[in-house]
Computed example of a mutant assay.
Amino acid sequence: MRAILTTVGQDKTGIIAGVSTFLAERGINILDLSQTIMKGYFTMMMVVDVDDSADFSALSSDLTGLGKKMGVEINIRNEKMYAAMHELSGGLD
């Protein structure tokens, strides 16, 4: 399944390395990545491929914990959720 992972926080060394190492250790492939620094704040969005058999709730919790250790906020959402939100907002026009 494809998922959207976002990371936001004060810029510091090692954010990309920490997140990408976490993902690699769990066999999660990064399909696309965009990152920038705006006024000292680091922002990153990834599209990742998560094994369908993975415990998504546990993965989300682990990423939240990683973010706390690193001093950033990390969230992951199933890509289908974003598609459904887009469909809903498109239907309101």
Rank of each mutant, 00 (worst) to 15 (best):
D11Y: 12
T64A: 02
G67M: 09
T64M: 00
D62W: 08
L63K: 00
T6P: 06
G27I: 06
D49H: 14
L63R: 00
A54P: 02
N78R: 09
D51Q: 13
K80D: 13
V50K: 09
S53A: 02
D62C: 05
L59A: 04
I37F: 12
G27C: 03
L63G: 00
K12A: 10
M81Y: 15
I74P: 06
D51E: 15
D62V: 00
S20I: 04
D32Q: 07
M81V: 15
G90P: 00
D11E: 11
R77W: 09
S53Y: 05
D11I: 04
I16K: 02
Y41K: 03
I30V: 14
F42C: 08
A58L: 09
E25S: 12
G27M: 06
V8G: 05
L88H: 01
M46D: 00
A58D: 01
S89V: 10
L33D: 14
L23V: 02
T6F: 12
M81N: 12
N78S: 05
D49N: 14
V47D: 08
A84C: 10
I28F: 02
H86Q: 13
L33N: 11
T36S: 08
A54L: 10
S57R: 07
R77D: 06
S57K: 07
T21N: 14
S57V: 05
Y41L: 09
L31G: 03
L5G: 01
I30A: 07
A54S: 14
G27D: 04
G27E: 07
M85Y: 15
V19W: 13
R26Y: 14
D52S: 09
E79P: 03
S34A: 11
S34I: 06
I37Q: 12
D62R: 01
H86L: 14
A54G: 00
M85I: 14
F56R: 06
L5H: 07
N75G: 00
V72Q: 14
A17R: 01
I76D: 01
G9H: 15
D51N: 14
